[in-house]
Amino acid sequence: MKCRDFQFLLDEYLDGELQDQLADEVILHKNECRRCQIHYNRRIRLFQMMKTARDPARTSDLSFKIMREVGKRQVPRAFPSHRIPVLAAVLVSLSVGALILFLGIGTIMDGFTFRDAVGTLVGIVGLPGEIQQNLDTLQRMASGWIIALKTLVIYLSSTVSPVSYIALIVLIGGILLGFGFWLNRHKTRKGYVSL
């Protein structure tokens, strides 16, 4: 074992975090190397000094001040903090559902194919800069989105039964909700606490 390795592993050894086999090697090296023995003795002394400073700090009871501040705050919600995906799921489900009701499942737009709708969407995505500049463009794009969505609904209505429709909406909503919950749990586990 090299001296540098010894010095690094010694900390783990003294912290009780080193595996037995490596611990034996650390002790063996310490007994053989005078330089590392000095390092060992210093570390032991450092650990002892740390112990003398371990006694807890004393302070007056802060609970009254803390609870007074807490009383001014809103009661925390038991709902996940990442509301955006959850809200998005609810909105998508509601809007798709409302659109289906509004259009009526049997309505079909003559002469407008699914391919046309895709073409419209591609055109919209390709012109983002004009969204803010040109109201006409904005209106055209908005109608493009509506047409695309209508076409999608009609396309689905002609191929899928109403029951499957509802199941699909519930599924999309469920996936988005699940994503919201997953994101919440994942971020908490990773330790991102925004203050």
Partner: peptide, 18 residues
């Protein structure tokens, strides 16, 4: 310390019970 507890209270819904 006071800030820490107030923040903890506000963020309590993000606490992972595991």
């Amino acid at each position: 310390t006071q800030e820490v507890f107030v923040n903890a209270y506000v963020k309590l819904h993000t606490f992972d019970a595991r």
